[in-house]
Amino acid sequence: MPISPGEVSYITGAASGIGRALATSLVNQGGLVIIADLNGEAGSKFAAELNDKAGSVVAISVKTNTTIWEDQLAGFQEAVRTFKRIDYVFANAGIAERPWLPPFDPETAASRPLLKPDLATADINLTGQLYTAALALQTFERQEIGPSGFRGKLILTASVFGYFPSRAMPLYAASKAGIINFMRSTAQYYAGKNITINSVAPNLVDTPIAPEVLFIPFRERKLLSDIQLVLDQFEKLLGESTLNGQALSVKADNAWVHPADTHMLEENLPACDLISVEIFKLFGDKTA
């Protein structure tokens, strides 16, 4: 659904790729955007381009390392100082898989030290998004209902690898699976609080997230996801949309709502429901 003119969007990873395309689309609809990106120079240049085209201040840039809480906090504070509120938060920043362990090779293993794993992919794709989500939800809680009828909306960029395993991308798959289940869980908690939480989960999209050479065989086999179709899924979650707890997914030119796993759910539901009740008691949360 379209946004209302003047609504404010905070987008991490907005200087390139999906984030950049999303920011451009929102400004074209009359929205205001915060470009939060580790590449401060690219973010500032992009914001200036949007402002020049609009003839007014429709975008600001905040240099943000999403894995650093203080960076993200400062970005949100600057956004509220400038635009007074935030209607949409897009937890979008992410990176591709990095080798977390050396390649499996029993012949040389004994001669190598036991190495600390590289968890950068999980740090950015999971922890960084959770920092963004924590700031979004606390910001929404502190502001009144906006023009579209909500305190705010949180949309997390996930991936189909949040549902499907990948032997070459265990940390990427783990982080995206974490985002999907975080989204489904928090969407239940915030239901009825004028806050929605959803995710958009594409398969591979042609963006700067990975080296150019990686995309060549996917182009040849027409396996890349259409970025406009990805943007269309974000659009479904905006404005007066009441969708909540949904994983809108894209593969090439196909889009679908990915269902939650219900295998053995009926048998486990009594314990799952009761643990929520008891945990809320321990945490002093009055949620039923």
Rank of each mutant, 00 (worst) to 15 (best):
M1L: 08
P2H: 05
S4V: 15
G6L: 05
I11F: 06
I11Y: 07
G13Y: 00
A14N: 01
A15P: 00
G17S: 13
R20S: 02
A23Y: 01
N28K: 15
Q29H: 03
G30V: 00
V33T: 05
V33N: 05
I34D: 13
I34S: 13
A36D: 04
D37Q: 02
A42K: 14
A42L: 14
N51G: 10
D52K: 11
A54C: 08
I60S: 11
S61H: 10
T66L: 06
R81N: 14
I86Y: 02
D87G: 03
D87P: 03
F90L: 00
A93T: 04
G94C: 07
R98P: 00
W100Y: 09
P102N: 06
F104L: 13
F104T: 06
P106G: 05
P106V: 09
A110L: 14
S111A: 15
R112D: 13
P113W: 15
K116L: 13
L119G: 13
A120V: 09
T121V: 04
T121L: 02
A122S: 03
A122K: 01
N125E: 00
L126C: 08
T127C: 14
Q129L: 01
L135C: 05
L135E: 04
L137W: 00
Q138P: 01
T139L: 07
R142T: 06
G146A: 09
P147E: 12
S148E: 12
S148P: 04
G149D: 13
L154N: 06
I155S: 04
L156V: 14
L156P: 08
F161V: 11
S166Y: 14
K176A: 04
I180W: 02
M183I: 10
S185G: 14
G192C: 12
N194S: 11
N194I: 08
I195Q: 08
N198G: 06
V200D: 11
P202F: 05
N203L: 10
L204V: 11
V205N: 01
I209P: 13
P211T: 15
E212K: 14
E212T: 07
L214T: 15
F215L: 15
E220M: 10
L223N: 09
L223E: 12
L223Y: 08
L224Q: 04
S225P: 11
Q228P: 11
D232R: 06
E235V: 01
L243E: 06
G245Y: 07
Q246F: 14
L248V: 13
A252N: 06
N254Q: 12
A255N: 09
M264I: 02
L265I: 06
E266L: 03
E267S: 15
N268A: 15
L269M: 09
I275T: 11
F280C: 15
D285P: 00
T287R: 09
